[in-house]
Design a protein around this nucleic acid. Structure first.
Lengths: 207, 207, 207, 207
DNA sequence: GATGAATGAGCTTTCATTCAT
DNA sequence: AATGAATGAAAGCTCATTCAT
């Protein structure tokens, strides 16, 4: 209970600071301070810094996959599903209002992952890779389904379409966040982003 | 002359290693070794590690802007220009065949940039921001032009379209690189990527 | 009563783990776990980690001294006594079947003893030193007695003879333990060790 | 040259402090200070603390083996050889006038050696074990030779005799060192020790 | 009495940076 | 101009010890 509570607080603190400063520039001391606990406790709850990151990413992926499955259950049409899934993702990014792209972060941290020897961490890493893979497969299958039903255009592979829509979403949100941090002027709003993605998806829909 | 030569070698070495391992995980010692010079010389040619990165990014942005301007000069039609610009960008990403997204790296390194006190570095940083801004503006103007001429659809802001096409390009290439590093199976080829971007751009073109 | 019980369990646990891993590498957490009590309780029963060690050593020294006095009471002849004492020591080492040489451990821990400020600990430390001294004196006196009675050769000081017999015993047993831990092949058995010590003692006996 | 010099200085400093305080209580900072170099340099010259220790032990073992072989070359008679070898060892212990029993230290550090993953360290460790083994074998062979020639008594295994003489030497010298550190009154001199060992060896010689 | 969550001092280790040569 | 030995600040991590419950 208390432990879970602290673990969650550390996780939230880590999520926040990783998002602001990037994994590598974040120190355990900062996470501890932000979470209002001691450095030592961080190492009681987590094996090491990488372990924290893996948990953050895992939490994020789980949230995303849950959200998506939930949305998928409510639609039948692949096109509706696609819209629903990306709407959900945008909502999540908006909610979290954090510059946390686990995609980016995983990439930033890849050199570190090669050092993973600990079995627990290996498992977590495998879960993450599996979760990410699952997300991809779900989307690809969705698009392929639409293509088979003649609802989505077939000139491009599902993977390409998935990457286009996904990449656009990420970049558009990243722009918003950069703007909110005052580091850039992008000249568009969250409203524009949502419209953009809806429009983009519809481009691949056969009317 | 000799100095320029050394500086270029260091820059190339840095570009290569930053691309492989990320800025943070790259050590000056590695750069020096790769460049075939001493660690000391690196600090003679550059103020510090960040300075190297800024130069790398600056070089990249300059290359991109030059390439784009060169391509733009050869076309008149905004749609042709758009295709030409992104074709050029893809070619560049392909050529460099390096996991070097200055966008990513700039983001990775942002926390470090806040420490910039040195006037020279401040100037370089401003140049980079200016260059990136310039690239954005060029693209936005191009799209806006197309919209004014009725060649590109006007339902979305130019910034949104630019971000969609740019983001898609980046994500698609990132997937290729991940695959080439054996870290993911994406299931598409460079050919697919080029087709995807051409198709994507055409989606915004009014026929 | 209950406290005594807990204290004994902690002491036994500590003895076991100190013996296996050495004082420094043993953590309070391990001792607590082995003893089946909480970490907190360890600090209720003992001032600190060093206090536990001092108690372990004290227990060991007391056991040795008791055993020796017991054996000495049964013999009259100095040579018999000498044999009896070392037979008892060997038996003890064999019984404990633990790699616990308080001599070694005291040495390992000496730097820590300099930090002793607490009066209780100072007293315990003094008791240990006194006990060790007592053991030495008993042996030396025994040998001196034998020399005076013309039973033990007088060309060497009693201290030298004591150190030779004691050192040999320790080294021989240490070899056995190393072998039992699979870290060395010594090529002798406990039987050989006992024979060796008996033979060694007899070398100093005048026939 | 400079590097070798520093490495030697660090090694000497480490030897001295390991000897005084034990491996585990010695910090890199202390070694660096004693050697008159920075902490960083210690890690330039050695992989880590354990690496330093292994080098110290290796140096010691090499010195011992060299010294012994040198002595052995000058004698023909096994008994003479035995005397020569232990005389050499005593001389070495006396010279080094340091409380450095690599036997003790190896034992103290054994838990740490199980963590050895690095290939270089594994090799060093193997060299040490091999060197120690070699030393044992040399002595055992020497004693066995003497037994075969009817010069040394055969009632005890060579290993037992070796362990007795070796253990006695160590204990006697340890006593001297404890005394010199003011931690004990042993009541014998270096002279007594040398006499003791000579006498002890002669006990196993058949006249 | 007993617990174990929480602490933080102190350690090893890394590496950008300096500077004597 | 060029080197690389040397530095030391700063990070991750361990664990004896404390204390609210």
């Amino acid at each position: 209970m208390a432990e879970q509570d602290k673990k969650t607080r550390i996780l939230n603190a880590a999520m926040k600071i990783f998002a602001c400063k990037g994994y590598q520039y974040t120190t355990i001391a900062e996470i501890a301070k932000e979470a209002g606990v001691s450095k030592g406790l961080v190492h009681v709850c987590f094996e090491n810094k990488l372990d924290i990151l893996l948990d953050v990413i895992l939490f994020f992926i789980d949230t995303v996959n849950d959200l998506i499955n939930q949305k998928l259950a409510r639609c039948t049409n692949p096109v509706e599903k696609l819209h629903a899934v990306f709407a959900a993702l945008m909502e999540l990014m908006s909610q979290s209002s954090r510059n946390l792209y686990w995609g980016h972060i995983l990439k930033e941290v890849l050199p570190d992952t090669e050092k993973i020897k600990d079995e627990n961490l290996k498992k977590k890493y495998a879960l993450i890779i599996g979760g990410a893979r699952q997300l991809q497969l779900t989307l690809d299958e969705l698009i392929a389904d639409g293509q088979r039903q003649g609802l989505i255009e077939s000139s491009l592979k599902p993977q390409i379409i998935r990457q286009i829509i996904g990449g656009s979403s990420q970049m558009l949100y990243q722009g918003l966040i950069l703007e909110s941090h005052g580091r850039r002027v992008m000249g568009y709003t969250e409203e524009d982003v949502r419209d953009g993605i809806v429009t983009l998806i519809d481009k691949f829909v056969i009317k």
